[in-house]
């Protein structure tokens, strides 16, 4: 076996603590006992491989992949970025899954009873695979803010959920992308559960390079996954 070393540990200085009491649901769901440290074996250094053949032609365009009668309502945006490891090496050919509410802040989900309209032309789910340089891109509608029952008058900031695989189960990541300048961020206990020094890593940047004139604004969201402790050999080098 090619020995590229272990994956780097989860950086608990960058991830939120599981028990974050301001986010009330953590109090009954965060593990109460310390995690048991597990040396990495083949069971952990492997993981499912989902490439381009698992992605349909409209999967990365949420404005089209559930359209029934026309375009969904809201502000069309482009979200794109690069997935890399901690050493800055791009991670090619990995799957991203995204989901979000519509422009009115409503999820098409039986549990979402927010009194805001559903959009018959928008589901809010998509997928894409990073290219050879670790880059991804999808088209969607800017999600709306919505209320939630955590505390009186609690509202989630605009966000898009991201799920990434990476090359092993150890690089698995589920996170949320936020938007720059959102005044709800400083009030949000989920965002603020992240150590302060790492919060801005979850906030996308407006990018005029990604924007398309007369059509859609672009937001850049780069993602960093766990890397290997040893530098891989270049193919053929």
């Amino acid at each position: 076996m090619t020995d590229q070393g272990d994956y780097t540990p989860r950086d608990w200085g960058s991830h939120p603590p599981n028990l974050s009491p301001a986010y009330k649901s953590t109090t009954l769901r965060a593990p109460g006992k310390p995690l048991v440290v597990l040396p990495q074996s083949l069971s952990e250094r492997t993981g499912p491989v989902y490439g381009q053949n698992y992605v349909g032609p409209l999967d990365n365009d949420l404005t089209k992949n559930a359209a029934k009668t026309g375009e969904p309502n809201g502000e069309r945006i482009i979200v794109a970025g690069q997935v890399a490891d901690e050493a800055g090496r791009p991670i090619p050919h990995i799957l991203l899954e995204v989901w979000q509410p519509n422009a009115a802040g409503r999820y098409q989900h039986a549990d979402d009873q927010h009194d805001a309209p559903l959009d018959p032309n928008f589901l809010g789910a998509g997928r894409c695979v990073t290219d050879g340089d670790g880059r991804y891109r999808f088209i969607t509608i800017k999600p709306g803010a919505y209320p939630w029952p955590n505390h009186y008058n609690a509202w989630r900031p605009n966000h898009i959920h991201f799920s990434l695989f990476g090359p092993s189960i150890l690089t698995r990541l589920v996170t949320q992308m936020y938007f720059p300048g959102d005044p709800l961020l400083e009030l949000d206990p989920i965002f603020n559960g992240v150590p302060e020094a790492s919060r801005q890593l979850l906030v996308s940047k407006l990018s005029m390079e990604l924007s398309e004139p007369e059509w859609a604004l672009g937001y850049e969201f780069n993602i960093v996954l766990r890397g290997r402790t040893a530098t891989p050999m270049e193919d053929g080098a």
Partner: peptide, 25 residues
Amino acid sequence: RKRQTPSQTVGPYFAYGLTPEQYGY
């Protein structure tokens, strides 16, 4: 070295993103 992108909860509304057929989407 770059810092790892922080994890966030999957939330209550993952069904149509992660398990759509199971939930009837």
